[in-house]
Design a protein around this nucleic acid. Structure first.
Lengths: 199, 199
DNA sequence: AATATATGTCAGTGATCACTGACATTATAG
DNA sequence: CTATAATGTCAGTGATCACTGACATATATT
């Protein structure tokens, strides 16, 4: 029955993430989590010892930032619009993967040590990589970029806003989809960075 | 003792907002709220009847969108960069005023009817007003704007992202302040909208 | 002084919840 | 067949929490 144990723990973790991300830690009972996993409450406590420990274990599933590194190391073509598009898509990809965990962190009724730091690792890394990208592009003479760090941040914030908007309510703004937004935003940035300022 | 009653209800509402926005509805007890307001738990229940009703009353404090309307009606000078700056500042002003309520809504462990709608009223209105502004500016020949609604949305998302970033953790990104971000973002947009696309 | 109003104290109720111990069941592995 | 591991059932325990009723107190108005 070894695979049975594995399966049970997984089911419990998934149920916990699903329920807690929707309704919050304190609003979900251990009984509910166990039922959602088709297991008894007893099994939950045998596996994790406490409700808090269950959540902590669940949060360790948070995705790390390697994918982003790979993208920047290998998949860029040094053509502004194409690269920004690729970066955007990877960003939303990663964020969507962690969707429910981000929701839990947002509600954050429970303090889990080190979790906030891990959550922030991705955006921080993206900021660094994007800043370096802008600098290099600037050196290559392909863009005009007076303040790379700030412009990288600005670009990131737009993505973050769109993600949060989508996360919170799905369709707050009828007729405006994420993909459309990404394309428009990339265009705005590309246009702004590829021309001389002449006011 | 009429002003005393007024004062007590206010104190309770403020305490409720403060505590619940920080730790969530279920994590805060009525006892704590009462103590924070320097009143007895009994007084809380005499005023509001239930914990839920207390929160509902507190959330009715949500600011309405008149200020935004006034800004667009009276305070624009039809000069892109100046207007975008003014709009940004007013936006963050309003959002910051509702900061704690937005946090509560984000955690949203309690379903309060009609609250989500009220919360979304502001951004929706801003989107409409900003779109109209872009259209008019385009007609005046002051900007080149192919897709006003989408570009207004894009501009808004950047502001929203920056606000949420600030809301969540204050100083996630050392050395980058909100005001700097606003200025840079306005520049990026202004540059993108004031030139011909020539790719 | 008399009345009304806002608040406090205190002791308690009933519900819920995280968590436990004792014991039974099922399945698998050796 | 037997030992072991995973799960279930059931009946709890102790703590916490929203909420209440009875009664007292303080203050202000008339």
């Amino acid at each position: 029955m070894r695979q049975a144990k594995q399966g049970s723990a997984e089911k419990l973790l998934k149920a916990a993430i699903d329920l807690i991300s929707e309704r919050g830690y304190h609003a979900v009972t251990t009984q509910e989590i166990a039922s959602a996993a088709d297991l008894s409450e007893k099994t939950l406590f045998r596996h994790f010892g406490s409700k808090q420990r269950l959540l902590e274990t669940a949060l360790e599933r948070f995705r790390y930032a390697e994918e982003l590194q790979i993208l920047f190391n290998e998949q860029l073509v040094w053509e502004l619009e194409a690269d920004l598009l690729a970066i955007c898509r990877k960003y939303h990809d990663i964020m969507n993967h962690d969707r429910k965990l981000i929701l839990i962190a947002l509600k954050d009724e429970v303090h889990i040590p080190g979790f906030k730091e891990r959550r922030l690792q991705n955006p921080h890394q993206l900021l660094t990589l994007l800043t370096d990208y802008f600098i290099t592009m600037s050196e290559k003479g392909k863009i005009v970029c007076s303040n790379p760090a700030m412009q990288a941040f600005t670009f990131m914030m737009a993505q973050y806003g769109a993600f949060m908007n989508d996360l919170e309510a799905g369709e707050n703004y009828p007729g405006i989809g994420l993909e459309q937004f990404i394309q428009e935003n990339v265009k705005v940035f590309a246009r702004s960075l590829t021309i001389q300022k002449e006011l």
